[in-house]
Amino acid sequence: MNEPALAIRGLCKSFVLHAQGGVELRVLRDVTLEVRAGECVALEGRSGSGKSTLLKCIYGTYRANAGSIRVLGREVVGAPPRELLALRREALGYVSQFLRAVPRVPALDVVAEPLIERCGESAEALAAARRAAGQLLLRLRVPMRLWEVPPATFSGGEQQRVNIARALLEPRPVLLLDEPTAALDADNRATVVALIGELRRAGAAIVGIFHDARVRDAVATRVFDLERGR
């Protein structure tokens, strides 16, 4: 399979701030990047160079001004909302820096949600989804007593692990990681590093931001410098 899982060509993204008199911030200029299955690309560049912006463009949250982003051959730029939702569901995993949890939903269901959405009213499917979520939380050392608690009250590290579990419960072919280990202690960092390695070897194409050099060296197969464009 020679087709890259993720192919970005000539990507430009700027923000027009109308409240500031229409000033235009050009964040990404002509970014070209290809990531194949089994690769893990670490994004480099100083703060403000557009690393997070690139991830959000790939996920489709930020709407690119020009260029093309193809995920498994399907175009993200300008994709109609429904197609983009389907693409996310089938092909794109995204671990954001912060967990945006719904109030009142217990941690276990936050993690299982991507699976639960497809359960409909089947009680067995729901139970299976929650079992799978529990196993992943166990591996990430989120204690069982927290599973039925909404994660809004968790510590930063616990929230981040819930967030990782949620994104990795059902591995997607293309995985976007925005500082997945920033708030974790050494043991949990090692677990996450191991998880990322497993997913990559299983064939995931991964793009990530890793400020921690040890983590980066442990997971990345390649570094892409956004400021130099390679």
Partner: peptide, 22 residues
Amino acid sequence: ETGLTDQVLDDPHHPYTQQLVA
């Protein structure tokens, strides 16, 4: 403006949407 919820809220384009989000 229209779009996915995260697109409109995290990357609002229209001046009015930006003002609403801000």
